[in-house]
Amino acid sequence: MQNSLAALEEPDVPKGLPIGPLPIDCDPDDTTPIRWVRMPNGAGCWAVSDYRLARQVLADPRFSRAAALAPDVARVASIDPSPDSIISLDGTAHARLRRIVAGAFTERRVTALRPVIEDRVRELLDELAAGDQPADLVAGLAAPLPLSVLCHMLGIPVTDQESFREWVPVLFDLDGAGPENRARAFRITHYMAKLIGQKRREPGDDLISALIQAADTEGRLTNRELVTLSLSLLMAGYDSTADQITLAFLGLLHDPARADALRADPGLVPAEVEELLQTNSSAPLSFSRAVTEPVRVADVTIRPGEPVLVFLLGANRGLRRSEGTPAGAHLAFGHGVHRCLGAPLARLQLATVIRLTLDRFPRLELAEDVDGLHWKPAAATRGLTRLHVRC
């Protein structure tokens, strides 16, 4: 047991673990604090990789999310939330929505989800155990878990969740211009608007009902604003969590000694979750920002109209080389006013799924070579299309 604990005292990125394609031409272990880079779509932007500077950029109101959506600022990502999304707003407009959402993401609500998450994980593990081997950990566990949790939290009826599951991917493929994509976008938007109308008439103990109540108390939101807000929460909480679960197991199964240490002492799981978030985060980049006035960053002057990104993966890796930083100080959930409100829920899901899966499958192992992994194309989140394991 002592050796297991020692193995966790000074964790590091597992040697030989690939990082997959990135939507930015930067090495996460390069210490260059800021550089001008070209994105896959050809647009140029400033990329901040230094941890200390990254925190400053994410917290400085001069680096504006709203300004990044101005017509004269280049679009640097294929997926960007709508201008009226909570993720795209600044100042009082953002604070108004944030206050409403924060009222629904209370500690009581997140804690109350623990048995729901545990039950769903156990169901999925039962299905993995009963299915063919090797099993796909993405399709069988990492993807369905956060979607089930979000559907439960939002108040999506169980009878509708299968259809809802088919519509959700359109939110992460906003460049798709085909008729099928447009039809799915219409269906999920229409469904959410109808559901909000029902919750107004017959509120329940769910997030949408809580948002409606908070909106009426804090300043009434229109149905359109509530639809946008609900879909924004879904976007923020689904893909990133599914990919983070996948990357967490990839790291643990690539380094079996770490998985064995967690089996021996489940009390180490929360600290391991923070380590996994820091060293192998599913979110490689922040959403883009633009400055409202010229700002000096290191030896560079950033001017209005020039997009700015924080290379979160690089900044988090750099944090490892910093002294005196507390546990959990990573930027996997961002920083400043746009820091992810769903961070406690993501942590709870990660800790629960790691603890229960390692306990259920003491011989869980990778069933494919890490050099031949099937990575998702470079996008807003890092992840795998599949991960074969033997249970």
Results as ranks from 00 to 15, higher is better:
134 P>I: 05
46 W>Q: 12
206 D>A: 09
88 S>P: 00
286 S>D: 02
98 R>K: 11
52 R>N: 07
54 A>D: 05
387 L>C: 09
355 R>K: 07
363 R>A: 15
154 L>Q: 03
107 E>K: 07
238 Y>V: 00
347 R>D: 03
251 G>R: 10
237 G>I: 01
329 A>C: 04
350 L>D: 09
40 P>T: 12
289 R>N: 04
351 A>F: 00
118 E>M: 10
85 S>K: 06
343 A>Q: 01
304 P>W: 00
205 D>Y: 08
162 E>R: 13
204 G>N: 02
209 S>A: 13
17 L>R: 04
55 R>E: 11
183 A>E: 15
151 C>M: 03
303 R>Q: 13
178 G>Q: 14
309 L>T: 06
252 L>Y: 06
227 V>A: 13
52 R>S: 12
124 L>A: 03
81 P>T: 01
376 K>C: 11
300 V>S: 12
208 I>K: 15
213 Q>Y: 01
241 T>R: 01
216 D>R: 15
98 R>A: 03
216 D>V: 14
117 I>H: 10
1 M>F: 03
367 A>C: 05
257 A>R: 14
39 M>A: 12
136 D>A: 08
75 R>H: 06
161 Q>W: 01
29 D>N: 10
17 L>I: 01
279 T>G: 10
299 D>R: 10
102 A>G: 09
135 A>L: 05
42 G>R: 07
37 V>S: 01
188 I>R: 14
141 L>C: 02
205 D>P: 14
109 R>S: 10
161 Q>L: 00
284 P>M: 01
358 L>P: 11
382 R>D: 00
194 K>V: 10
362 P>S: 11
103 G>S: 04
99 R>A: 10
243 D>V: 00
65 R>D: 02
78 S>V: 04
190 H>Y: 05
240 S>D: 03
28 P>Y: 09
115 P>A: 01
293 E>F: 00
189 T>E: 11
244 Q>V: 00
95 A>F: 11
17 L>A: 05
290 A>Q: 00
116 V>E: 10
